[in-house]
Design a protein around this nucleic acid. Structure first.
Lengths: 226, 226
DNA sequence: ATTGTAAACGTATATTTAACACTTATTAAA
DNA sequence: TTTAATAAGTGTTAAATATACGTTTACAAT
């Protein structure tokens, strides 16, 4: 059909964020193939004829973390002509939010992966550092108007946990009284009668996030600033 | 280098917005090549080895509008396997904001182009309608926290013009007194002593947008809601 | 001089955000 | 079994911001 048109190599790279109840983390992998074998890198793969970019990204994530149906969002394309010294490759970066505790350990270990704090990211191959920086910026921006925080927390979580997560995202302390007021005003949480006593004697009630209310919240045109 | 990897066709498509002092408009082109010759479409082109996607998009825009250094932003990729019945093509959509009056008429006429109101968009080829819808959504969202409005206005503009533009973007009436208060509070406009008398006997003062103040406004972490 | 019209301006009220201090439930140690 | 320690949980007030609304002003056309 489009005969004399040039074809190019196209790849996807995945930025994988997690939250371990203390810090936001980035999952990086020690590369095992040339070029750059032994260096830290995002995970990625070339695209073939059979998959959309999204499907390809989901597949990569499954391969490396054992997780399916991960929150995944396109970040942007990276297409500088000489970004890969080997050969020209256009890469589409995706960023994903995961619950660290759900990640299948064997998958991660098999690939020599490691969770890094955002302020301790090692040197990365190619333009992967730029991708990561852009993803962090986007994560912070996005958090202001979409409640993506939930993708990073376990199914049941406490208010102090949720607050801590947002403190990590915004990188500043929040007032706990105002935080509670605000989050409850959105009316998207369901209280359980369970308590998490891992961090205090009193224990903190566990909440679940109410999918139905949440969806209508989204549908209306939310503004999630905290 | 990456020998046995498959290569694919990759294209860019451009969504071109403008504002004619009354409505936000979308520039569409009557396609002159097969497949779909004679149908309305976005402008686009296949990517070759020599240009980044951004450069390619700028080149396309120059070819079709005569404009250089247009405001241009990546929207997202479209990569469904069967999105183009001819052959598999991955397309990256960009959206651009232009000042209609600066567009070189001959360029536009040569290509059988037409500015459409957003509520009168004709049937488009492939998934171009989806691209356009996504672009409109993004435009509206973006306007809430970045003063992109300026890209759509001539260098000198009046407050009522600016207000009208935002009324078009948000698709609702704004209070003129509050609008003025808000926009002046950002302190990013410079008043000229010229008046535009095209819409009233009294005439409205023309303003320019103050690049320096604007940049620091952006740098700090603005919130441009109007 | 009068009239019509869009531009420009100000104020009062409601809502939202920001700042701040005490009480409660529980466990572990005395 | 009392006491001490600690994070969880709650309410109030002041400041800032957003909303709603009426009047005056400059100019051209009559």
């Amino acid at each position: 059909m489009y005969k004399n048109k040039q074809k190019l190599l196209i790849a996807v790279d995945c930025i994988i964020f997690g939250f371990d109840s203390e810090q936001i983390k980035l999952l990086l992998f020690k590369r095992k193939v040339e070029p750059y074998s032994g260096n830290w890198s995002l995970v990625g793969a070339f695209i073939n004829e059979n998959l959309s970019l999204n499907e390809a990204a989901q597949e990569i994530l499954f391969e490396y973390t054992g997780l399916k149906d991960i929150y995944l969002e396109e970040l942007q394309t990276y297409s500088k002509v000489d970004r890969d010294p080997g050969e020209r490759v256009i890469s589409v970066a995706f960023f994903s939010l995961t619950r660290i505790n759900e990640i299948v350990e064997e998958s991660v270990e098999k690939f020599d992966a490691h969770w890094f704090n955002l302020d301790e990211i090692p040197e990365l191959i190619l333009d992967h550092r730029e991708m990561v920086d852009n993803a962090i910026t986007k994560l912070r921006q996005k958090a202001r108007y979409q409640p993506i925080g939930f993708e990073l927390l376990p199914e049941k979580f406490t208010i102090p946990q949720l607050q801590l997560l947002y403190e990590c995202i915004y990188n500043k302390k929040l007032d706990d009284r105002n935080f509670r007021k605000k989050i409850f005003s959105y009316d998207i949480l369901t209280k359980t009668d369970l308590k998490d006593k891992s961090t205090s004697k009193k224990g903190a009630f566990l909440y679940k996030f109410n999918k139905k209310k949440f969806d209508s919240f989204i549908a209306n045109g939310y503004n999630f600033e905290l």
